[in-house]
């Protein structure tokens, strides 16, 4: 057995080496860097420098507020939408189910730059189809890119469009694992379809919904592409700047690696904390 293990580890060594150098070491290194002042040469150990700044930095609180706002509004809306989409996809009445499944999943595989460019065009003040449609029903044009609230809404719409289908496919897998005879038993018990949904489907989907929610929370905590590409680097005036964008700005524009590392660890810590709270709230009763 020991020889077998040794052989296995010899085969694993190349992977483990790459994993250690490119995954483990950056994680450790960034943690160390977060305690260093990195805008001096040479870098010096100054524990309060970055973490102290973080506590009093209005830009950090603005990014945190924006990230949490998106998290609180967009994630529940997207999960609810994904459940509705999954139920529709699962309906035996739906024709061309494969086509819909592909259509719902397609946004995930579309290039981020391409989809951001299309969203910018669609929501353009003068030429965008969205404003034209709003106009046609009597609603005045919205300047999606110059005002904070519409810009935030745009980010949420874009993220929801991109990920709702992905979550719907995961939830669909959960739906299809619920045995049909449970519903038949409920039908014989004269339980309506609506009550079946709320009293059987939703409770049985809980683990899958929790899984999707955890993935979405982690994703939203790292949100970068949409505010970077669609609302032009967190505009207007930092109104859609997220923690991911703040990290990028500090680390790769200002080359302030220490502060960027502190932001990164805060993001990871928050994601873990929120996920733990959610898992605790959704735990199975004993």
């Amino acid at each position: 057995m020991r020889t077998q293990n040794a052989t296995a580890y010899r085969f694993l060594t190349p992977y483990l080496l790459i994993f250690a150098i490119f995954w483990i070491w950056p994680i450790i290194s960034s943690f160390i860097i977060s305690f260093q002042a990195t805008r001096t040469v040479p870098w010096r150990f100054a524990p309060a420098f970055n973490w102290g700044r973080l506590i009093g930095d209005p830009a950090f609180y603005n990014a945190l507020k924006n990230t949490l706002l998106i998290l609180v509004i967009q994630v529940p809306v997207m999960i609810a939408l994904a459940i509705v989409m999954a139920v529709l996809l699962n309906s035996p009445l739906l024709k061309a189910r494969g086509l819909y499944r592909f259509a719902f999943f397609a946004p995930v595989v579309v290039g981020e730059v391409a989809y951001s460019a299309v969203f910018r065009l669609m929501f353009s003040l003068d030429f965008g189809i969205v404003n034209k449609l709003l106009n046609s029903v009597g609603i005045s044009k919205i300047d999606w890119f110059s005002n904070v609230t519409p810009a935030m809404a745009l980010i949420m719409i874009a993220v929801t469009w991109r990920w709702a289908g992905y979550n719907a496919i995961i939830i669909l897998a959960g739906l299809q694992s619920i045995p049909e005879d449970v519903y038949e038993a409920a039908t014989l018990d004269r339980v309506s379809r609506v009550k079946q949904f709320f009293h059987i489907t939703l409770p049985l989907l809980k683990p899958v919904i929790v899984f999707c929610a955890v993935l979405s929370i982690i994703g939203t905590m790292q949100l970068f592409t949409e505010p970077f590409l669609i609302t032009e680097r967190g505009g207007p005036g930092g109104g859609t700047e997220t923690l991911g964008l703040l990290l990028y700005r500090q680390g790769f524009r200002s080359l302030n690696f220490g502060y960027a590392s502190a932001v990164a660890y805060t993001m990871a810590g928050l994601a873990i904390a929120i996920t733990l709270v959610q898992l605790w709230l959704m735990r199975e009763p004993k």
Binding site: P179, D181, V182, E184, A185, A186, I200, P203, L204, K206
Partner: peptide, 9 residues
């Protein structure tokens, strides 16, 4: 039912 079809939750 053969599989009992109990509501697991």
């Amino acid at each position: 039912f053969q599989s009992y079809a109990l509501y697991p939750h």
